[in-house]
């Protein structure tokens, strides 16, 4: 309870300090819409050149894309500060203050920023889903709905866990931002049906960097009924639990290695 109160106090403070850079916030919002527009345009241009991608129509591929934005935006809302930890804060020795406070460091990092841009991403995703779903003729079953919700929420947990674990490596290597960026980029390849990939990439995207597990497979369940929704839901929740536990373990081990820059 104390932590809930503390979280909201911190977030309020971070929002106030954010408002100090109004112009930057406007630029950030614009660039965020622009970047989503560009990636969507790229997918659209490619699909314009071919009749369908491995049997999936433009509307179906759009649905994959829109759905992928839900877990990504949820993660974006809460854990943006870890990017800074991975890229600069450890390298600059900027973390000292967190180690002096009587609250777990990892909690403080979560409470450092709340990114309202995530809502924009979520709205864009929902809009894209709605537009594409309008052109599809699939019947929405209870199972499919459940697995989509599970994929969005627990998918976000998995993304956050990956982020925490890799950001923690910065305590050892000083800078893990580029690595985090690359791992994060793999989510781009889960925005398509996994059927287009050969076996080893499917394995990678389901078991190692499981973006495909919570993005492609749930959408496939809805579009083609290829997987059992309940079993898949269980698998996603299980994976989320494992990744979260691993991330916490890695973080606690790595944070002991932090050294201040002494400047």
């Amino acid at each position: 309870m104390r932590y809930v109160h503390l979280y909201f106090t911190c977030i309020k403070r971070s929002m106030i300090s954010r408002l100090e850079y109004k112009k930057d916030t406007v630029v950030a919002l614009f660039s965020f819409f622009f970047s989503n527009l560009c990636s969507l345009a790229a997918v659209y241009f490619i699909l314009q050149a071919i009749p369908a991608l491995a049997g999936y129509t433009l509307a179906e591929v759009g649905f994959f894309y829109g759905f992928s934005m839900l877990p990504i935006s949820l993660d974006h809302l809460f854990s943006d500060e870890f990017w800074l930890v991975a890229y600069r804060r450890v390298k600059d020795g900027d973390m000292d203050m967190h180690f002096l406070r009587p609250v777990p460091v990892i909690f403080q990092i979560f409470a450092e920023t709340f990114q309202p841009e995530g809502f924009g991403e979520m709205i864009l995703g929902v809009a894209l889903i709605a537009v594409c779903a309008g052109q599809l003729t699939v019947s929405l079953t209870v199972g499919a709905l459940v697995v989509l919700c599970v994929g969005a929420v627990f998918g976000a947990v998995i993304i956050t866990s990956l982020k925490v674990a890799i950001a923690a490596l910065a305590f050892i290597f000083k800078r893990s931002g580029p690595l985090l960026q690359i791992i994060y980029n793999f989510s781009n390849y889960a925005k398509y049906p996994l059927a287009i990939y050969p076996f080893f990439i499917r394995t990678l995207l389901i078991f190692v960097l499981p973006f495909g597990l919570f993005i492609s497979l749930p959408v496939d369940t809805l579009l083609t009924g290829a997987h059992d929704p309940w079993l898949l839901s269980l698998a996603i929740i299980g994976a989320a639990a494992v990744f979260f536990a691993l991330a916490l373990w890695i973080w606690t081990r790595c944070e002991r290695r932090y050294e201040s820059t002494g400047s």
Binding site: I46, A49, I50, A54, L179, I182, I201, L204, L205
Partner: peptide, 20 residues
């Protein structure tokens, strides 16, 4: 890791050409 990423990209394009 980039080698893996390039592999993903290559297969994405192969799928595009196969569907052409």
């Amino acid at each position: 890791i980039t080698v893996c990423e390039v592999a993903c990209l290559v297969f994405l394009w192969l799928a595009v050409y196969r569907s052409g």
